[in-house]
């Protein structure tokens, strides 16, 4: 296939949209997955008492 301006820009316009929707859905699922909530809470609190863990 010849790499013409029409072809590449059409690809940019269509694939770009699919790519973005896929990424957005993926991240939303991840961020709001219920069972991960506890870990996120723990991470959020970790900066406040960030000196408890042992050091390697």
């Amino acid at each position: 296939m010849e790499l013409t301006y029409e072809a590449t820009s059409a690809f940019a316009k269509s694939f770009g949209l699919i790519y973005l929707i896929a990424l957005s859905v993926g991240i939303t699922v991840y961020a709001f997955w219920p069972s991960l909530g506890k870990r996120f809470d723990k991470a959020a609190k970790s900066v406040l008492d960030d000196e408890d863990g042992p050091c390697r």
């Binding site: 790499l3 013409t4 301006y5 029409e6 590449t8 820009s9 690809f11 940019a12 694939f15 770009g16 790519y19 990424l23």
Partner: peptide, 20 residues
């Protein structure tokens, strides 16, 4: 991946712009 794909898709076609 997330950052470079967007830039690539947007800029790459401009390099074929000569034929338009």
């Amino acid at each position: 991946l997330a950052a470079s794909v967007g830039g690539f898709i947007e800029i790459a076609p401009l390099f074929t712009i000569d034929d338009t």
